[in-house]
Amino acid sequence: MHVICALANSYTTPLYIRLATEPQTKNQYAAPLQDIFFIGNREDVCSPGMQTAYDLALWLLGGHFIILGTRAILSDGTQYVCEHIVVIMLAHTVFMCCAQISTTLPASGGIEECLQANPSGVQTWPWYGMSFITQSFAGGRACADMIYSGHMSNMVILVMCGADTYRTDQSRAVHWLVSFALSVVAAVCIVLCQDHYTVDVVLGVGIAILLCTNSPLRRLARAWGAANYAAECAVLGILGYDVKKE
C-alpha cells in the first residue's frame, strides 16, 4: 500500500506543481475549486490542533481495530476479519490511486500551501517515497491527491471491519457510537482545514462502504483465511498439538 501510494504521489504532485505554475495553466490550477464549506482563509479557520485531531482519530480507530482483530483471532481462529481488511485496503489503495492519477484536480489548499509543505522541493523526497505513512515525518507532503479522501475511507473500513469482529450475541452500540463521533470530528476538521474538498470526504465514505460490502472481496478474504487456518493447524500438528481443523 505504501509503495502504491508513493508511486502515485510521485506522479501527481510534480504534475500539479507544474500545472499550477506554468503560465498556460496557472489560472486553472493555482487556486482551489469552489467548495461551500471552505469558510474564510485557511490560516484563520484551521489550527494545528484540528489537523492533529483528524490524524489522531484515524490512529485511534486503527489501534481499536488491532485490539478487536487480535481478540477475534484468539477467541476463534476461523474468523477471517484480518484477511478481509487487508484485501479491502489493498483494493481500496489501488482504486484510489487510479482515481488520483487519472484526473489531476487543483489542490484544495492551493499552490502556495503545497510549496510551503515542500520547502526543499518534491525532487528531494526520501528514496522510499511519500505516502500517508511517511509524509508526517519525511519533510514533505503530497499535493493534489484529492479524489478521494484516504483518511475518511480508511476510517470507515476500520469501523465496518471492526464491527465484523463482534459475535451475534455482543452489542456493537458503543463501537458504532464512538466510531461515528471520531469520524464526524475527522470529516469536519479535514474540510475546514481545506485538506480535502467536501466531495472527497463524501466519496471516501461511499466507496469504503461499497468495498466493505463487496461479495467477491469477502469470498476472497474467506478463502485466504481458510488457507491460513489450515496452514496454522498443520504446523501445530507437526509440533504435536491436537488441533481440530475446521
Score class of each variant (00 low, 15 high):
Arg218Ala: 14
Gly140Asp: 08
Leu158Ser: 01
Thr198Ser: 11
Pro216Thr: 08
Ile238Gln: 14
Pro126Ile: 01
Val205Cys: 07
Thr213Lys: 10
Asp164Gln: 12
Tyr197Asn: 10
Phe132Ser: 14
Leu177His: 06
Val243Lys: 07
Val202Gln: 01
Leu239Tyr: 15
Asp164Ile: 11
Pro216His: 13
Ile157Arg: 02
Val184Ile: 14
Arg219Ile: 11
Arg218Leu: 08
Val202Tyr: 10
Gly225Met: 12
Gly237Glu: 13
Ser136Ile: 06
Thr168Phe: 11
Gly162Ile: 03
Leu211His: 08
Leu236Asn: 08
Asp169His: 12
Pro126Lys: 01
Gln170Ile: 13
Ala230Met: 11
Pro216Phe: 10
Val185Trp: 04
Asp242Ala: 03
Asp164His: 07
Met155Ala: 02
Cys233Ser: 10
Cys233Ile: 00
Gln170Val: 13
Leu203His: 11
Ala221His: 01
Leu211Arg: 01
Arg172His: 07
Gly129Lys: 06
Ala223Ile: 12
His151Phe: 05
Tyr229Ser: 00
Arg222Thr: 08
Pro126Glu: 05
Met160Pro: 09
Ile133Arg: 05
Cys233Lys: 02
Arg141Gln: 06
Ser149Lys: 02
Leu192Lys: 13
Val199Cys: 01
Arg218Ile: 02
Ile207Asp: 01
Val243Asn: 10
Ile207His: 02
Gln194Ala: 04
Thr168Ser: 15
Ala208Trp: 01
Thr168Lys: 15
Gly139His: 03
Met130Val: 15
Leu236Cys: 05
Trp125Asn: 06
Gly162Ser: 04
His175Leu: 01
Ile133Leu: 14
Ala223Met: 15
Gln194Arg: 10
Met155Asp: 07
Val201Trp: 00
Ala227Tyr: 09
Phe180Tyr: 06
Ser153Tyr: 12
Leu236Met: 13
Phe137Leu: 12
Val156Gln: 00
Cys143Met: 05
Cys189Asp: 15
Ala138Gly: 03
Asp200His: 06
Arg141Pro: 13
Ala234Gln: 14
Ala231Thr: 10
Leu203Ser: 10
Ala231Gly: 07
Ile207Leu: 10
Glu232Arg: 15
Val159Ile: 15
Val205Phe: 02
Ala227Lys: 11
His196Met: 07
Ile238His: 13
Leu192Phe: 06
Ala221Arg: 11
Tyr197His: 04
Ala231Met: 08
Asp169Met: 00
Gly206Gln: 03
Leu211Gly: 00
Gly206Tyr: 01
Leu203Ile: 10
Gln194Thr: 12
Gly140Phe: 12
Pro216Leu: 08
Val235Tyr: 13
Arg218Cys: 09
Asp145Thr: 13
Gly162Leu: 03
Thr198Pro: 09
Asp145Met: 12
Asn228Tyr: 09
Ser131Met: 05
Ile190Arg: 07
Asp169Asn: 10
Cys161Ala: 05
Val156Ala: 01
Val201Met: 14
Leu210Phe: 12
Trp127Gly: 05
Ile133Pro: 11
Ile207Phe: 08
Ile209Phe: 01
Tyr166Asn: 04
Asp200Gln: 02
Val188Glu: 04
Cys143Phe: 03
Val235Arg: 07
Thr134Ile: 02
Ala144Asp: 00
Ser171Tyr: 11
Arg219Phe: 14
Leu211Asp: 08
Leu211Pro: 02
Glu232Lys: 14
Ala181Tyr: 07
Ala230His: 15
